[in-house]
Simulated scan of single mutants.
Amino acid sequence: MSGSPEDRGGPRAWAELLRLPALFTVPGDALAGAAAVRARPGRRTLLAIGSSLCLYEAGMALNDWADRAEDAVERPHRPLPSGRIRPAAALTAACALTASGLALAARSGRPALTVAAPLAATVWAYDLALKRTPAGPAAMAAARGLDLLLGAAATTGGIRPALRPAALLAGHTLALTTVSRQETRGGSPLPALAALATTGVLARSLTRRRARPATAARPARSRTTADTLRGALAAVYAATAARPYLHAALNPSPPLTQRAVGGGIRATIPLQAALSARSGAPVTALLTAALAPSAARFARKVSVT
């Protein structure tokens, strides 16, 4: 894609810069956080989702601003190296989106802002300093985990019950980010193999029944239905992520590695849905899973990597 005059600074260029299809992977973080603390999503949860969306897009804009020299060589079609968006505009957008994200978190309460502030700091640290260091994948994983905790903190003010779901989501993100580090050059099959193994471990953890006796409020039939939903979502997660990871492990070329990254990103939604189902929130799980078709449809128009 060249920087044609009619496209410079236009919606298409900004959609590519912000990788808009990836936005569908964000609301499930806060929803899974709310489910983990056994609360129904409400106004504060919606504010947390808005904060997450802003901080996520701030990271996207900042990522391309920080990578503009590298992208000029490896991805000259991207909005900044192609001249369709000015670097100053991308940096301004990153700052404005960060401020908006923190403001929305503050509106949902002090506990949410307490989580959103380190989340924003992690996003900026990753893009500006940590991305190419050994700490890069861990920083990205921490950001995803904090995003889930943001939903929990905004909804009830507490985060302890959400720590385990946040760790599972962070594990998926750690594996995915490690694979993404070689998507333009290819290389060793080990990151894809590690991601494949991580997917299996997470899927197994999602399907393991938690020892809670049936009660009058939650009869055995209801529990069986919830377990079935959780198992189905875990299977979708595993199928979405595992196949492209396996292909990348067998042939770690840039095209297959990029497909593996795309598969891992798409798998985030069924993982979030499975986490909500695991926490006993089937409606929230189904609402989250319903985002997947839209994410896939828009990803055919604008790349998520």
Rank of each mutant, 00 (worst) to 15 (best):
R8Q: 15
R132P: 04
M1F: 12
P219F: 09
R278M: 10
W65C: 08
I265G: 00
G83T: 09
G3S: 03
E70Q: 15
R38W: 08
P81V: 14
A99F: 09
F298N: 04
L91I: 05
A99I: 15
I49C: 09
L17C: 02
D227T: 13
A30W: 00
L55K: 08
R164C: 02
A32G: 03
A241L: 03
T215C: 07
P254T: 02
A39R: 15
L190I: 13
L190C: 05
S303V: 14
D7Y: 09
G9E: 03
P21Q: 10
R44P: 04
R218H: 14
R160W: 05
R144C: 06
V304F: 07
L53Q: 02
W14T: 11
A292D: 12
S180R: 10
L104H: 04
K131I: 10
M60A: 14
L80D: 08
A238Q: 10
A99K: 04
R78P: 10
D29P: 02
L275N: 01
V283T: 15
L206E: 04
T45W: 06
T155F: 12
A267I: 12
A32W: 06
R43N: 10
G263R: 02
T92I: 14
G187D: 01
A195V: 04
P79C: 14
A295H: 14
R43V: 14
L46P: 01
A197G: 12
D7C: 08
A142E: 03
R218F: 13
P252T: 13
R19W: 07
S82W: 02
R110V: 14
L275R: 01
M1R: 09
A239L: 07
A61P: 03
P270N: 00
V37H: 05
G10W: 02
V73F: 13
S2K: 15
A39I: 04
R68Y: 12
R144P: 05
A88S: 14
L119H: 08
H247S: 13
L202T: 09
R8M: 06
T25G: 12
A112Y: 01
P21R: 08
T224N: 13
V236F: 04
A117W: 05
R78A: 08
Y56R: 14
A135W: 02
T228C: 01
D64A: 12
L62E: 13
